[in-house]
Amino acid sequence: MKEKYTIGKFIIHLILIAGIVIVAFPFIWMIMSSLKSLTDFYDFSFLPKSIDLSGYIYTFEETGFLRWYLNSFIVAVVVTVSNIIFCSLIGYTLAKFRFFGARGIFILILSTMMIPTEMLVIPWYVLSSDMQWVDSYWGIMFPGMMEAFGIFLMRQFMGNVPDDILDAARIDGMGEFKIWWRVAMPQVKPAISALAIITFLGNWNAYLWPVIVTSTAEMRTLPVGISLYGTSDAGGIQWNTIMAMSTLTVIPMIIVFLIFQRQIVEGIALTGTKG
């Protein structure tokens, strides 16, 4: 690593720091609020008067928080793995194969993004109800197993993969499936990492569909669980509990992000074009 300290870099640091102060402020306020007692909370001040963990204690002692955590984790992991595999495979096929109907299929998949989820909730519920998927993991997961968003992302990135290296692999007698996995996939590692982060997050924070499709307390995901405490007619909104739960919800996200953002950077090394 060659380090060059220039005035230009220093200014960029300054601008970035100013940016993060503004961007992180509401987030830090949330964490601060989670450390307040309820009376302290209603002071609406930034810093807590004294550290009070009652929101966290309530979260762990009185709610099914750990179970919701597990549910969200299972759902997010399975859906993310499914999306990485299917979206990259479909995106690769759409970008690198020429066949009748390619355009039509791409438009079809893309157009599914144009119908708001809010409208699909009822048909999905009817389907789940007929198939006995209500209140199951599969019920929560099935609509998101291959997001059109991910297919589109992978198609855009797969298009950048040079045809030469794919053809070279073919001449070497590699199978098509293997070419996709061994040759094309490493080329778009940064995009896969980005897709993984975004899919994981989207499912970790998904609310409307999980709330409709789950019935028992055991099957709730984190956002559904948190929303139980956030309605004005629910008798005693415990804001400190909500803030505590939301803070705890972000932690695994940060870990997932840290893992995959390293992959994004490592992508350079793998494509063999390190500067």
């Binding site: 299972i74 399975v78 006995q132 998927w133 209500v134 199951s136 993991y137 019920g139 997961m141 099957m219």
Partner: peptide, 17 residues
């Protein structure tokens, strides 16, 4: 692994109503 876990999850959930 993904397919198997899907099947397991489908089988163990559902129909609690």
């Amino acid at each position: 692994g993904v397919l198997a876990s899907m099947l397991v999850l489908t089988a163990c959930g559902g129909a609690n109503d």
